[in-house]
């Protein structure tokens, strides 16, 4: 049993976002990047399946600043192998899931796994999420919003979630692509000693036969949401704000 898990870096959203001058991208100067939280779950699910089914786990990522560190982390967490897919930064106009899907799909064809795990979404999937694109490019069945994955010979059993907490369980023939929402256990902690031991390890490249596809990014502009139409804001210190809220609740009849 062979599992490929996709690892992606994405902007850390805890900070204020600023826009690049042309308004087509976020300003990447001050922003930090971290592993997509759903890919984090996907990695954990992959390692859980390795532990329960004896599968081998291969982590792949598009080569970028920090991608080698991210993949070393995947190795430390329990992945058996890791590859970076080289991408000439000058050749690529957009790094959307739609644009990069053919590269990942080519890598998947090369690695020929039984199961591909990837986080359900990333925070800039304006043109669609990666898992269904991989399904389309590989022709394999794809299921997103998955919260449980179990493996048996030639089959996977998954739990797909819907709005309102509803869910369904499916049996699906492998190979299959899973857009994972939550792993069956929270991501584990990997001790720094394992990262330290991997410090000098080189993450090999995986040359693939594929090119990014086009998306509509050339016709898209980004903007900060106009907040003026939004909430009436209460100002002042904590006491002032609490007073304003208290008055509002009284006025609306929620409290005496």
């Amino acid at each position: 049993m062979k599992i490929v898990v996709i690892q992606r870096l994405e902007p850390v959203l805890t900070e204020e976002l600023e826009l690049s001058d042309d308004g087509r991208d976020i300003d990447r100067e001050w922003i930090g990047f971290a592993l997509n939280q759903f890919d984090d779950q996907a990695l954990e699910q992959a390692v859980l399946l390795k532990e329960s089914n004896g599968a081998t786990v291969t982590a792949i990522a598009i080569e970028d600043e920090g991608s080698d560190k991210m993949l070393k982390n995947a190795l430390a967490r329990g992945a058996d192998a890791a590859f970076q897919i080289p991408l000439d930064a000058d050749d690529v106009e957009s790094r959307s899931s739609r644009a990069l899907a053919p590269l990942y799909a080519a890598a998947i064809r090369t690695l020929a796994p039984d199961l591909v795990l990837v986080g359900i979404l990333s925070n800039s999937d304006l043109y669609g999420e990666l898992a269904p694109y991989l399904g389309a490019h590989t022709g394999w069945p794809q299921i997103s919003a998955v919260t449980e994955v179990r493996l048996a010979a030639g089959k996977a059993t998954v739990r797909q979630e819907y709005a309102g907490g509803r869910a369904a369980r499916f049996e699906v023939d492998t190979p299959v692509i899973i857009g994972l929402q939550t792993a069956m256990q929270p991501p584990r902690y990997v001790a720094g000693s394992k990262l330290r031991d991997l410090l000098k390890v080189q993450i090999p490249e995986l040359e693939v036969d594929g090119a990014p596809s086009a998306d509509m990014s050339h016709g898209t502009t980004l903007a900060l949401p106009d907040q003026s139409a939004g909430a009436v804001m209460f100002d002042g210190d904590a006491d002032d704000i609490a007073t304003s809220i208290h008055n509002l609740l009284k006025e609306k009849g929620f409290v005496q």
Binding site: P225, G230, A231, V232, M233, F234, A238, I241, S244, I245
Partner: peptide, 28 residues
């Protein structure tokens, strides 16, 4: 202050919730 919730909420305040909540509890 840039939290998207302020675009949806009817009333809002940029503050430390742990400062406002106790005060509000006191008042209530």
């Amino acid at each position: 202050p840039r939290a998207p919730i302020f675009g949806k909420a009817h009333y809002g305040a940029v503050c430390d919730m742990f400062e406002v909540m106790p005060t509000l509890i006191q008042k209530l």
